[in-house]
Amino acid sequence: MDLLKIFSKNNTNSKTVAKERLKLVLINDRADISPKFIEMLKSDITRVVSEYMVIDEEGFDIKLTRTKRESDDAPIPALVANIPIVKVKDKNIK
């Protein structure tokens, strides 16, 4: 019986991963944002953040996901960026 649990657990993990991937595809379709557009956003965000910080561009990740709106808990798309910061540049603030 333990052997069956192991196999069913792996199926559940694969099922969960596939379900999450499908959700992301649907979010991209509903938001009508192409992968090319997301790459353009990533490029612009990298350029702007790089003016103030040294970032690890290899670790930079941007994706479209889903979150709930605070006012009514309705699901809405959200742009999430993970930007590893190496150091903050020394800028004179006026």
Rank of each mutant, 00 (worst) to 15 (best):
residue 25 V to S: 06
residue 1 M to H: 12
residue 85 I to P: 00
residue 15 K to P: 00
residue 67 T to R: 07
residue 2 D to F: 14
residue 61 D to E: 05
residue 77 P to S: 01
residue 25 V to D: 08
residue 11 N to A: 11
residue 33 I to C: 02
residue 90 D to N: 09
residue 53 M to G: 00
residue 91 K to S: 02
residue 18 A to Q: 06
residue 17 V to L: 14
residue 24 L to K: 05
residue 38 I to S: 01
residue 74 A to D: 00
residue 6 I to C: 05
residue 53 M to V: 06
residue 16 T to C: 06
residue 75 P to D: 01
residue 10 N to T: 09
residue 14 S to Y: 08
residue 2 D to K: 15
residue 11 N to G: 03
residue 53 M to R: 08
residue 89 K to G: 00
residue 33 I to R: 05
residue 78 A to C: 11
residue 5 K to Y: 12
residue 24 L to T: 01
residue 41 L to M: 15
residue 7 F to V: 14
residue 84 P to K: 08
residue 59 G to K: 13
residue 55 I to S: 01
residue 46 T to I: 15
residue 41 L to D: 05
residue 23 K to T: 04
residue 93 I to E: 12
residue 52 Y to T: 03
residue 50 S to T: 07
residue 30 R to P: 01
residue 65 T to N: 04
residue 89 K to I: 05
residue 63 K to I: 02
residue 48 V to R: 10
residue 47 R to C: 07
residue 57 E to Y: 07
residue 75 P to E: 03
residue 24 L to C: 02
residue 94 K to Q: 10
residue 46 T to A: 14
residue 54 V to A: 06
residue 40 M to E: 09
residue 11 N to H: 13
residue 45 I to N: 04
residue 86 V to N: 03
residue 67 T to L: 06
residue 67 T to M: 07
residue 10 N to K: 15
residue 31 A to G: 03
residue 53 M to P: 00
residue 51 E to N: 10
residue 43 S to M: 11
residue 69 R to M: 02
residue 73 D to C: 01
residue 55 I to K: 07
residue 44 D to A: 15
residue 1 M to N: 12
residue 19 K to F: 11
residue 78 A to T: 08
residue 81 A to H: 09
residue 51 E to M: 13
residue 36 K to A: 06
residue 24 L to N: 03
residue 19 K to W: 07
residue 93 I to M: 09
residue 44 D to Y: 11
residue 54 V to S: 04
residue 86 V to T: 05
residue 53 M to N: 05
residue 81 A to I: 13
residue 10 N to Y: 09
residue 34 S to C: 03
residue 43 S to L: 13
residue 39 E to R: 15
residue 38 I to N: 01
residue 66 R to D: 02
residue 50 S to I: 07
residue 36 K to M: 09
residue 62 I to S: 00
residue 50 S to K: 12
residue 75 P to Y: 12
residue 66 R to E: 13
residue 28 N to Y: 11
residue 66 R to H: 05
residue 80 V to C: 01
residue 83 I to V: 15
residue 33 I to D: 01
residue 70 E to T: 00
residue 13 N to F: 11
residue 90 D to I: 10
residue 64 L to G: 02
residue 92 N to E: 15
residue 35 P to R: 13
residue 58 E to V: 12
residue 61 D to Q: 09
residue 15 K to C: 03
residue 82 N to L: 08
residue 25 V to L: 15
residue 73 D to Q: 06
residue 51 E to K: 14
residue 7 F to W: 09
residue 88 V to E: 04
residue 46 T to M: 10
residue 48 V to K: 12
residue 38 I to C: 02
residue 62 I to G: 00
residue 4 L to V: 09
residue 56 D to L: 08
residue 47 R to E: 12
residue 43 S to F: 11
residue 35 P to K: 14
residue 53 M to Q: 05
residue 2 D to Q: 12
residue 56 D to A: 08
residue 71 S to P: 00
residue 78 A to V: 10
residue 11 N to D: 08
residue 94 K to V: 14
residue 39 E to C: 04
residue 79 L to P: 00
residue 17 V to T: 10
residue 67 T to G: 03
residue 86 V to E: 05
